[in-house]
C-alpha cells in the first residue's frame, strides 16, 4: 500500500486515542452548555406570553409544550424588506417591542437581520421555517408556524398538568433571555406573574 494510506491506517496508541476522543466528546458538550449559559448570563431579558399549542393534547410525557402568543404565528403584513424569490426554508428575524402589559410582541419581521433596532426593541431569530412566495401564476405569500427552539419546558414528571391548565387560561408567561444574535433561552416560567421555576446557570 502507498505511504499516506499506510499512515492513515496505522493504529494510534490507545491511551492517546482515548484522550483525543475524551477531549472532543467532553469539549463539545461543555461548549454546548457554556453557549446556553452565556445567553442566560448575559442575554437581555424579555417577557413572553404563552398560548396552548393544541388544547386537546395535554401533557406529553415529561415536558410542557409552549406556544407564544403573537410570535408563533405571525401576520404576513408585518414583513418588511424583500421576500425570497421562491418557496424556501429559511429563518425569520422578528423585531420585538414591549406591549401595553410589558410582554413583548412582534413589531416587524424580515428575512435578513434587521440593521436598525431601537433601544427598547430586541431581535429574535426563528428556526428555519417553510416560506411560500406568491408567483405570477398565483398563490399567496405565507410563513409557516414559527419555532424558536424554546417550545418545550421539561418538568419533573406529573407537574406539567397544572402548567398546561394555566396556559390554557392564558396565565402562563415565560421570561426569555436573548443573545445579541437573536438566540433565545428560557430563564423563568411564571403563572400569574409568580415564578414557578427559575433556571440555574448550570
Amino acid at each position: 500500500m502507498t505511504g499516506p494510506g499506510q499512515m492513515l491506517r496505522r493504529p494510534l496508541n490507545p491511551y492517546l486515542a482515548a484522550l483525543v476522543s475524551a477531549v472532543v466528546l467532553i469539549g463539545t458538550l461543555a461548549l454546548a452548555i457554556e453557549q446556553r449559559a452565556a445567553i442566560l448570563r448575559d442575554g437581555r431579558e424579555i417577557l413572553l406570553k404563552t398560548e396552548p399549542v393544541d388544547p386537546r393534547d395535554l401533557m406529553r410525557g415529561d415536558y410542557v409544550r409552549l406556544g407564544y402568543t403573537d410570535l408563533s404565528s405571525i401576520d404576513e403584513t408585518l414583513v418588511t424588506g424583500p421576500w425570497p424569490d421562491r418557496d424556501t426554508t429559511i429563518p425569520v428575524w422578528l423585531t420585538l417591542a414591549p406591549g401595553e402589559d410589558g410582554a413583548f410582541v412582534a413589531r416587524s419581521a424580515s428575512f435578513s437581520r434587521p440593521e436598525t433596532v431601537a433601544a427598547e426593541e430586541v431581535v429574535l431569530k426563528s428556526l428555519p421555517v417553510r416560506v411560500t412566495v406568491a408567483q405570477p401564476s398565483g398563490g399567496l405569500n405565507a410563513i409557516g408556524r414559527l419555532e424558536f427552539g424554546i417550545e418545550r419546558y421539561y418538568v419533573p414528571e406529573g407537574e406539567g398538568l397544572e402548567i398546561e391548565k394555566a396556559q390554557n387560561q392564558g396565565r402562563t408567561t415565560v421570561a426569555v433571555r436573548i443573545s445579541p444574535d437573536g438566540a433565545p433561552q428560557i430563564a423563568r416560567l411564571m403563572i400569574d406573574g409568580e415564578t414557578l421555576y427559575e433556571e440555574p446557570l448550570y
Binding site: A18, V20, T28, I33, R36, L40, E147, G149, I150, R152
Partner: peptide, 30 residues
C-alpha cells in the same frame, strides 16, 4: 444539555453532533 436548557426542535444539530462524535471515536480507535 437540550433538556437542561429546555431546547426543542433541533434534530439536525443533534444528529450531526452525535455523528461527528462517533467519527472522531472511530478514527481514534480504528
Amino acid at each position: 444539555v437540550a433538556q437542561m436548557y429546555h431546547l426543542s426542535g433541533d434534530e439536525t444539530g443533534f444528529m450531526l453532533t452525535w455523528a461527528v462524535g462517533a467519527l472522531v471515536v472511530s478514527f481514534a480507535f480504528a
